[in-house]
């Protein structure tokens, strides 16, 4: 059996039944808001602050020595749920500064019309070469324009700090081997 206390519902007073006091109270609130600072962010001139960890447009990054980090392992291409990434692997020329290990992409296209900004490519990348950074505004007049190629992706990505300097480590190891090995 329910044992709650029965609440008395007070009948409305005459003033309350005219609605007018409530309306005046509301008008006091709205007139206060009339003079409050506005919260609008006037977009093209003012931009929102992008929080860290934001998943914007996927971009390719270089290490602080200016080397492209991608080795075209194609993991991102395979993991990409909407199949937005297309990589054509290529060899690194023998006399290149970077010619010590592995390969580099000959072409790296991301179709921004397919990308769903899930971030799986960034998560799967063993080389920390692809990052979803803070670019959120993507627009173009044609479909072709919205397939970002390698140059565009590097331009958007820029350089991020690197802890490993894998290329330098490999180069040092290779040189050590060439001069007879040992530590």
């Amino acid at each position: 059996m329910a044992t709650g206390k029965k609440l008395e519902r007070k009948p409305l007073s005459f003033a309350e039944r005219t609605y007018l006091p409530a309306i005046f109270a509301g008008m006091r609130t709205t007139i206060r808001h009339l003079f409050m600072p506005k919260v609008t962010l006037e977009y093209p001139e003012q931009r929102p602050a992008i929080p860290p960890g934001y998943r914007g447009v996927p971009t390719l990054v270089r290490d602080p020595n200016g080397r492209e980090k991608c080795v075209s392992c194609q993991l991102c291409e395979f993991v990409c749920p909407p199949k937005a990434i297309r990589i054509t692997p290529g060899e690194i020329p023998e006399h290149s500064d970077h010619a010590h290990v592995e390969k580099a992409p000959k072409a790296f296209d991301i179709d921004m019309l397919r990308c769903i900004y899930c971030g799986l490519c960034q998560e799967v990348c063993p080389e920390e070469a692809i990052f979803l950074q803070n670019i959120y505004s993507v627009s173009g007049y044609t479909r072709a324009e919205l397939v970002y190629d390698k140059a565009k992706l590097y331009e958007l990505g820029g350089t991020l700090p690197d802890k490993h300097f894998k290329w330098d480590v490999k180069k040092a190891a290779a040189e050590a081997t060439a001069t007879g090995g040992g530590h």
């Binding site: 009339l34 600072p37 506005k38 919260v39 609008t40 006037e42």
Partner: peptide, 10 residues
Amino acid sequence: KVSAWIQGRV
């Protein structure tokens, strides 16, 4: 304008 100001817009 007034509706915008009351709602905190410009």
